[in-house]
Every structure is written in structure tokens, then in C-alpha cells.
């Protein structure tokens, strides 16, 4: 079974700088890590390959040349190979353009069964790229997967986390699964993995090679415009009502009436 894992290199810092001109994140010069949610995606993909005893896990990322490090780290954990989608033309991509570009790269990989992603990235927090990829590829998606109950080459049964509990979803494959941290505990790299990762050849794909339509990539292909980035004002301190239930509820009703009726 061939499994693709989409990963993203994100800044390992809360001190993220924003480009004042483009209003996008400045990534150069900041220590980087694999998006923490993607680690669960990598782990689940490797576990499935191990369960089947055969197959291939391909780590795929889009980013600047330095994103190669993230792919090598994925290989050190047990991914078989890495593909870096990188081109100056992709700069400034929003989630729509990114998912389009990634889906073009996925089309180059034959006969895959699952595309795993973390539920969202820790920098942008949009949770849109996984679902976007599934739409561009026109294959099913299950988001917030917390458990794979059953999987074979043609179909899978998975548990999708919801606020109240979970849904059990059966889906044909190939499909896109975005995973939550409840799904597993990611392993650490192994020494043999690190050595393999150091030597591994990272396949690079450019915009031309992916036959991307120019108006669908990069800043120009991105419908999103960031008009302003700001920190929301801190919430005011709440007030705790104490006392007997009856007394407290009477006070609360009074307060609510004051707010509503004013």
C-alpha cells in the first residue's frame, strides 16, 4: 500500500515575524520543525505500512529549499522517501493555491491509497489544506481522524472525532485523512533512520514539472488577501457568582436581564 503524508515545516517559536508588505509569515532565519500535528500523520502512515508488512510511505511538502530538512526528519522516523515541491513561483500561496499545487504533485505519484495530513498547521491554523487537496483531487476526505479501525487497499473504516464523541465512517480509497493527536504517539527517529535520511535523495518538483496553471499558484493564484493581522484584545476578567444555587441563579438572571434589556 502506498501512503502519502503531507507535511509542513513551521517555525519553532512563538516569536513569529510577519512581513509588513505581504502580510505573510517570514520563515527565513527562524528555527524550524515539522508541524506537530503532521508528526501524528507520519506515525500513522508508518504504522499502516508496518501492519501490511509492505508498501511505501512518501513524505511530501511544499516550501522553500530549507523544507528539505523536514523531509529528512520524516525519513529518519521511517518514511521511505521525500518529495519537495519548491519554486519561487509558489511564494505567497494561500491555502487554496497550496492545496492545488500539492494535488498536482500527488497526481504524479501513482497508485496511492491514502493521503495523511495533520488536522492543521501550528502557524496558520486554518485546517484547510487537507480538505482542499481532497477537493482538487476529487477524492473523499475524512477530517479529525482519531482511529483507523480497518483498512485495506480499496476501503477504510475510521473514527472521526467530534465535539460530542465520534463518527464511524466507511470510505472508499484513495482518500484524504486529516488526523488529531489522539490517534497515536509519534515515535522518535532511529539511528538507522537518521543515517538513511542523511543519504536520502530528495526529489524536487518545480511548477513547470507539475504542469501548474500559472494563475492558480503563488500569490497571484491565491484568492485570500490578508488585510490586517492583529492580536485580539484580551478578554476582560469574568465574575464568579458564589452562594446557594437558588440565590446564585436569581442573581445571574438579574444580570442577564440587565445586559439584554439594558
Amino acid at each position: 500500500m502506498k501512503i502519502i503524508v503531507l507535511i509542513k515545516q513551521v517555525p519553532d517559536s512563538t516569536d513569529v515575524k510577519i512581513d509588513p508588505v505581504t502580510n505573510t509569515l517570514k520563515r527565513e532565519g527562524v528555527a524550524s520543525i515539522i508541524n506537530p500535528f503532521d508528526m501524528y500523520a507520519i506515525e500513522e502512515a508508518i504504522r499502516i505500512r508496518e501492519r501490511f508488512g509492505e508498501g511505501e510511505v512518501v513524505a511530501l511538502t511544499m516550501g522553500p529549499p530549507q523544507a528539505e530538512e523536514a523531509l529528512r526528519e520524516a525519513i529518519s522516523m521511517g518514511c521511505d522517501r521525500g518529495i519537495l515541491v519548491s519554486d519561487r513561483k509558489f511564494a505567497g500561496s494561500d491555502t487554496w493555491a497550496t492545496s492545488y499545487t500539492l494535488s498536482q504533485a500527488i497526481r504524479k505519484i501513482d497508485d496511492f491509497s491514502v493521503v495523511f495530513c495533520g488536522k492543521q498547521a501550528s502557524d496558520g491554523d486554518t485546517a484547510q489544506v487537507g480538505p482542499g487537496v481532497s477537493m482538487h483531487l476529487d477524492i473523499p476526505q475524512v477530517t479529525y481522524v482519531k482511529k483507523i479501525d480497518k483498512i485495506d487497499k480499496g476501503s477504510a473504516t475510521v473514527e472521526r472525532m467530534t465535539e460530542e464523541g465520534f463518527d464511524i465512517i466507511e470510505t472508499p480509497l484513495p482518500a484524504v485523512f486529516t488526523v488529531v493527536k489522539e490517534i497515536n504517539e509519534p515515535r522518535l527517529p532511529s539511528l538507522k533512520g537518521k543515517m538513511r535520511a542523511k543519504k536520502a535523495e530528495i526529489r524536487k518538483m518545480s511548477a513547470d514539472e507539475l504542469s501548474c496553471e500559472e494563475d492558480k499558484i503563488g500569490l497571484d493564484g491565491s484568492p485570500t488577501r490578508v488585510s490586517k493581522v492583529f492580536s485580539p484584545p484580551p478578554r476582560g476578567g469574568g465574575r464568579v457568582l458564589e452562594g446557594e444555587p437558588e440565590e446564585v441563579s436569581r442573581e445571574l438572571t438579574g444580570l442577564l436581564k440587565d445586559i439584554v434589556i439594558g
Partner: peptide, 19 residues
């Protein structure tokens, strides 16, 4: 050596994150 650096990094990671 490269290998020794890997050993050092990985063991520090285990120490930091797991131990």
C-alpha cells in the same frame, strides 16, 4: 564523526523528551 553527532543528538532528544 557524523554518526557520533547523530548519536549525541538522538540521545539528547530521548533524554529531553522521554527521560
Amino acid at each position: 564523526t557524523e554518526e557520533q553527532k547523530m548519536i549525541k543528538d538522538l540521545c539528547r532528544q530521548i533524554a529531553e523528551e522521554k527521560i
